[in-house]
Simulated scan of single mutants.
Amino acid sequence: MRTDREKFPNPPLVLAAAEVRFPYAPRLKHQETWDRLAEELRTVVPVLRKEQQATITLGPDGASVPSVETSLRLLDKASTSSLAFFPDRLVVESTDYVDFATFQELTRRGVEAIDKLGGPVAVERIGLRYINEIRVPGRIADTRDWTEWVAPALVGIGEVAGAWPVTTLQGVLQYKVGTDRHLIFRYAALPDGSVIGDAPLRRTRAGSGPVFVVDLDCFWQPADGQLPDFVADQVMECVTELHEPIEEAFLYVITERLKDEVLRKEAR
């Protein structure tokens, strides 16, 4: 992992998330297991919440079968970071991102806590996702006005239909960044709003008006279906490797003007 890159005092990152998926592990839905996880992690994420999520699956006859999935979410006292445990996955989220090393450590604590319980039998997928909302002091009346703030290639498509104002622009690209590793690059220029809400985690960076969203989702998933064993160190090594393409893509997006007039300014 590179440590020589500039750390911006006013980053546009509004949500960082990591997900580790594994085959169904029944013990991760039991109260006794939740109690052990809560005790293991109380110095980092001491606030315990049980959450329910409605899901719909298709039965053998094609009919919809509703069900409710119960999970354990452990949060910090500021409600800006959490570890959520499901029978088939661990989800780590933060809306108060300091740096990758800090987020990496939070993820490691969750992975190791599961491993101490005996761990799942294998790993199916590991993902890392960073959602950025870029807002600037300049006037944005047309998505093409973003040209000086983000890579021009992202907004150049707005010229296709001539001089009409472009109010919204969206796109998605998928890259292969390694063996069984992919990066999904989503971007959007929107006239207003936000792509994440204020729950279950509290937003720490709010804003209004035009926004340029950069959503970077890098993941590993074996194409041949051969699942490796769940080993905490190997999981964390993969998480670290997934961060590199995300950082590279973000550095491609931002321009010198954005760095000077926004990212290098102290957050208000």
Rank of each mutant, 00 (worst) to 15 (best):
G119L: 04
R129C: 08
T147F: 05
G171I: 04
R186F: 09
T143V: 15
Y187S: 05
L183C: 01
R181V: 13
I134N: 00
E112L: 10
W164T: 13
F103M: 03
P137N: 03
I140A: 02
D115S: 15
I157R: 04
A141K: 12
V123H: 02
G162S: 09
T147W: 02
D192P: 02
E148S: 13
F185K: 01
I131L: 15
P137Q: 00
I131A: 03
T167H: 10
V155L: 05
Q104D: 11
R108H: 06
V121W: 06
D142I: 02
G118M: 08
G119P: 00
R181Q: 15
L117E: 15
I126D: 02
Q104C: 04
A153N: 15
L169C: 07
I140V: 07
E124V: 11
R135C: 02
V160G: 09
A113C: 06
R129P: 04
E148M: 13
Y130M: 03
P120S: 12
L106P: 06
L106K: 07
Q174T: 14
T107E: 04
W146F: 09
R186Q: 13
L173R: 12
T168F: 11
E148R: 12
T167S: 11
P152F: 14
Q170P: 03
L128I: 09
K176R: 15
A161R: 13
A189P: 00
I140K: 02
T107Q: 02
Q104P: 00
A113H: 05
G110T: 04
A189N: 04
P137S: 11
G156Q: 15
G127Y: 01
Q170K: 14
T167Y: 11
D180N: 15
